[in-house]
């Protein structure tokens, strides 16, 4: 499978601040990626650069093997749905649907209209009169029906309730199954999407700190709870990402899969081991106390 996106040393600087700091990764054809991290970590800036809407300060960037800037071969294969997408004031929902095929050659009109029904959108309403959730739904519909070989969803569901979000995941998976393509989901609702992801990229303070298969990250972190002295003996040689004392007890979160031996030892020490969700692990890793950097894989 080919690489759809390749970045190397990608950097975006505003004044003295590195919004994106020396980021290198590749996105492969036909996978669903999660681009995760806190708000303001630099996720949106990275996607803006990949789609040539922002200019990188330095670094290499290849999309479909070419420079994306002013390159229709790249741009017409790319769809970037962002939370902040602007629409002309006089445009109605139906106008957005009518012009979309002018930009996305794979546009499926029937699919778009079936999604309009699913999300119960008023076709004739002006875009600027839509609620936050409806606006998000329009973005989701454009992103799905455009069937672009490289599709970005940046926080696509602000204002959407759990039912509508689940509908999005359903339609996304169904359509992805029939029309495999590279999809990047950028969100802070990590637990909700983690099952959908094949590969995870985590950005913290402009840096790429995790670049791994989602499955490899599952069970990567665990929390050990028990008497402080016993927990401390168990910790020897392990990477601790979070610590929370509670009286004589302590709860410690470890990075790294636990071996059967570890578990046996923990059981002997009377320690309780609980799994840590991907979201919780990322929260611990990105709370500013841990400086990490992902290896280039």
């Amino acid at each position: 499978m080919g690489n759809v996106v390749e970045t190397s040393g990608l950097t975006k600087t505003y004044g003295k601040v590195n919004a994106v700091d020396n980021v290198s990764f590749t996105l492969e054809d036909g996978k669903i990626y999660g681009l995760l991290g806190r708000n303001g970590a630099g996720k949106t800036t990275i996607m803006h650069m990949i789609t040539a809407q922002l200019f990188a300060t330095s670094g290499q960037l290849k999309v479909f093997g070419e420079e994306p800037f002013e390159n229709n071969r790249v741009l017409r294969q790319t769809c970037f749905i962002k939370e902040s997408q602007k629409y002309p004031d006089n445009f109605r929902v139906v106008d957005v649907l009518n012009v979309s095929p002018l930009f996305f050659p794979n546009w499926d009109r029937e699919f778009a209209y079936s999604l309009i029904k699913d999300f119960q959108l008023p076709l004739k309403r002006r875009m600027k009169k839509l609620s936050r959730g409806m606006l998000s739904s329009v973005g989701i519909i454009v992103g799905l029906a455009s069937r672009a070989p490289l599709t970005f969803f940046d926080e696509p569901y602000l204002g959407l309730d759990a039912v509508a979000r689940s509908l999005f995941y359903d339609r996304l998976l169904e359509d992805y199954a029939e029309h495999p393509r590279t999809i990047v989901l950028s969100t802070h609702l990590i637990d909700e999407v983690s099952q959908l992801l094949e590969h995870v990229l985590v950005i913290d303070n402009g840096k790429l700190i995790i670049n791994e298969e989602a499955e490899a990250l599952r069970g990567r972190a665990s929390t050990v709870v028990g008497l402080t002295s016993k927990v401390e003996t168990f910790l020897a040689g392990k990477e601790v990402i979070h610590r929370e004392p509670l009286g004589g007890l302590i709860s410690v979160t470890l990075l790294g899969a636990l071996t059967a031996q570890d578990r046996k030892k923990a059981a002997e020490l009377g320690l309780e081991i609980t799994p840590v969700s991907l979201q919780q692990m990322i929260v611990y890793l990105t709370n500013g106390k841990n400086a990490r950097e992902a290896g280039v894989s």
Partner: peptide, 16 residues
């Protein structure tokens, strides 16, 4: 102001 962010956001070239 009305159309540039929309049209560029939908993947058009600046030249176009």
């Amino acid at each position: 102001a009305q159309t540039y962010p929309f049209i560029i956001g939908f993947g058009a070239r600046r030249k176009d």
